[in-house]
């Protein structure tokens, strides 16, 4: 694939957090000159343990943090850089968080929740996707029903709430969806339903995914290419087949070996 097929290009970005406690200055270099790109229509996986910089990358991509250096180019435009004030394409990039219990405002109805991202997109786009028939189509696409629209989040199970969060991410018809551990808080059987849904809507809505996870099983099933993060650095980026069959880096090997796999670990 050539370079202009990339939907997202992250170019040597850096982020350091400085905290001060009891007079001691503490520097945490969370992301270290990190580069990768995501092709259109691809599912790109980012795996790593706590402290690897996964969530910082998600925050940088969603314009929740500012870069120290480097730039992020989305769809041909610079959307984040250390200098200047690049315009962030709200609505074109959406995120689904891990915990659907706290990502939905308990005081809002499902309809209000799903329509919220339309607040900051253009009038044309709002007209195109904000109609109630479109909201209805969307809620059905994620496997819920019309009568659910007037209910509050606490009336739903964890899996249903994650469906609502997915519908909310889709309302603006984004090009890229960041999935930040979207199934980690769910039961196994519910996880399977949500993964199937993510797969189905990817085709239906022509989405590109950045899938952040520590669950190797899900990554192996869902991702086309996988990047392995360790202490803020990308130690290895490979295709799905290669990374699981022949990991090159020591850390990748250790990570994969640590995952207890019920299909291999039953020699007892």
């Amino acid at each position: 694939m050539s370079n202009h097929d990339a939907l997202l290009r992250v170019e040597s970005i850096n982020k350091t957090f400085i905290t001060q406690s009891r007079g001691i200055r503490n520097e945490n270099h969370a992301v270290k000159s990190l580069s990768f790109e995501i092709m259109r229509g691809e599912v790109f996986g980012l795996v790593g343990e706590s402290g690897s910089g996964k969530s910082t990358i998600a925050n940088l991509l969603m314009n929740l943090e500012t870069l120290d250096s480097g730039e992020i180019i989305f769809d041909g435009n610079v959307i984040a850089a250390s200098k200047g004030t690049p315009k962030f394409p709200y609505g074109d990039i959406q995120i689904v968080f891990q915990d659907p219990k706290s990502s939905l405002d308990p005081r809002m109805s499902v309809r209000e929740i799903i329509e919220e991202p339309l607040r900051s997109v253009s009038i044309d786009r709002k007209k195109e996707f904000g109609s109630s028939s479109d909201v209805l189509k969307l809620i059905q696409a994620v496997g819920l029903r019309e009568e659910h629209l007037d209910r509050k989040p606490h009336q739903f199970s964890g899996g249903q709430r994650q469906r609502i969060a997915i519908a909310r991410a889709l309302i603006t018809r984004p090009k890229l969806v960041v999935l930040d551990e979207p199934t980690s808080a769910l039961d196994i059987s519910v996880q399977a339903q949500v993964i199937n849904l993510l797969k189905a809507i990817q085709n239906e809505f022509g989405l590109t995914y950045l899938f952040i996870s520590h669950n190797m099983g899900v990554v192996k099933y869902l991702c086309d290419r996988v990047g392995v993060l360790y202490q803020g650095e990308l130690v290895e980026v490979e295709t799905n087949e290669r990374i699981f069959a022949a990991p090159k880096q020591d850390y990748t090997k250790k990570l994969l070996a640590s995952v207890p796999n019920m299909f291999e670990d039953m020699e007892k």
Binding site: I188, S189, A192, M216, G217, V218, K220, Y221, L222, M262
Partner: peptide
């Protein structure tokens, strides 16, 4: 339950 695990499912 075991079949719903993604680990060995065909992609």
């Amino acid at each position: 339950l075991i079949r719903s695990l993604p680990d060995i499912a065909a992609r």
